[in-house]
Simulated scan of single mutants.
Amino acid sequence: MSLYTARVLVFFFCLFDWSLAASTPNVVFVLADDYGYNDIGYHGSEIQTPTLDKLAQSGVKLENYYVQPICSPTRSQLMSGRYQIHTGLQHSIIWPEQPNGLPLNSPTLADKMKEAGYSTHMVGKWHLGFYKKEYLPWKRGFDTYFGYLTGSEDYFKHIRKTSFTHKAYLDLHNEQGPVKNESGHYSAHLFTQKAIDVVNSHNKKKVKEVNV
């Protein structure tokens, strides 16, 4: 399997309620990128997914639900609530050298959750544009971010190669800038730990006044 394949758990964000109202839940959303019908155990796959099977068994299975077959269009729909023909992202993914992104006039899900009083955090893959700072995830509604900005990465070195010159560069970032000290730390383990840290570090006593 290529180290640049995107078929991994790559997108995770937490939306924590800042209010003390018990009726407002905390939200944890996990997206598995490019996940096929036969890539999960309970569909008869050779790939064993006992944890996902257990979650599905105790939850709701959307067995007749469809998304776009590639990354950026699907992510743009999730984050904006708009079909990709209305954001210009219907044709393909956003390539590393491409000056494109989710339009800035499209509020993101994170923006809307913040308006409702949530703190927002993202771990994993962005892939919705980064050619200007205004398109970065921490400028699009997320309080914190840790992950890579393009469509795939080397799972150990956290590098990406340009599409045409194949020049390698570091693609691991947080809201402070490039992260240079995680080489050799396997991405699945790294992102898992970062996600756990986000949950554990949430200040449950923090209250924010929300104007509705």
Rank of each mutant, 00 (worst) to 15 (best):
M113G: 01
H189A: 12
G151F: 05
K114T: 13
R140K: 08
G177W: 03
V10I: 01
T51M: 09
D197R: 08
H121Y: 14
A110M: 06
E209C: 02
I85L: 14
F16V: 02
V207F: 14
D39G: 14
L89V: 05
P73R: 10
Q193Y: 05
V27E: 02
A56S: 15
H158G: 05
L190T: 01
K157S: 13
V199H: 05
K114S: 13
E175F: 00
H127P: 03
A56F: 10
K204H: 12
V67M: 12
F12T: 06
M113A: 13
L149V: 05
Q84H: 10
F142I: 04
F164T: 09
Q98Y: 04
T192D: 02
G44L: 14
G44A: 13
P137Y: 07
S201A: 15
K114E: 12
P96N: 07
N211Y: 09
E175W: 00
P69V: 09
K112L: 09
Y42W: 15
Q77T: 15
L62D: 00
E115A: 14
F16S: 07
K139T: 05
Q48F: 11
K208T: 14
P25S: 05
Q90E: 13
L78F: 15
G177R: 04
G184T: 05
D143H: 10
S201N: 13
E46A: 14
V27Q: 00
M79W: 12
R160Y: 07
P73A: 08
L128E: 00
F11T: 11
I40W: 08
E134W: 00
T165H: 07
E97C: 01
P137I: 07
Q98P: 00
N181T: 13
P73N: 09
Y83D: 11
L78W: 12
K205V: 02
F12G: 00
A195E: 09
